[in-house]
Design a protein around this nucleic acid. Structure first.
Lengths: 68, 68
DNA sequence: ATAAAAAGTAATATATACTTGACAAAATGT
DNA sequence: ACATTTTGTCAAGTATATATTACTTTTTAT
């Protein structure tokens, strides 16, 4: 569970503050903050809601290919 | 939150029982059962673990395009 | 340099994911 | 038809995601 830079970038590209994104997906600002800073494990539903708000898919924001 | 048929299909294609998949990802059989039958909201980490065990990505198992 | 907005973080509380144990129903193999 | 494996489901417990409130630090704008 590292930082989620992709999510932060997607949010900034959409010109949303953490608070605005939080309101859009129905959680608090703190929850968004902790997800971006990678120090917890959101539910699938929340991930999907974030993806829809930011016009991305799960793979684009939350999937990491493994090194080989 | 409907049934997750894609996950079940991917599991069967890999010839794994719910119990084997559960062991592979470190949860109980009941948890896998409830995810497949769509009556709860797994964590991102668990979704990722399931994807890795089944050689799929998040989009392949857990993303649904919206109708337009 | 100052003010305002945005973001990090901490403590306590609550909702819910997930476990454990157990039993029944359904599926599969012989 | 029977035995075995797999799956569905329930009740009660534990762990953790998320809320709430509040304070501090950083960023952005004037």
């Amino acid at each position: 569970m590292g930082k989620n830079r992709r999510m932060k970038i997607a949010r900034v590209e959409k010109d949303l503050s953490q608070e605005q994104l939080a309101a859009a997906v129905g959680v608090t600002r703190q929850t968004i903050s902790m997800i971006e800073s990678g120090r917890f494990n959101p539910s699938l539903q929340l991930c999907v809601a974030i993806c829809r708000a930011l016009d991305r898919t799960l793979d684009q924001l939350f999937w990491e290919e493994e090194a080989e």
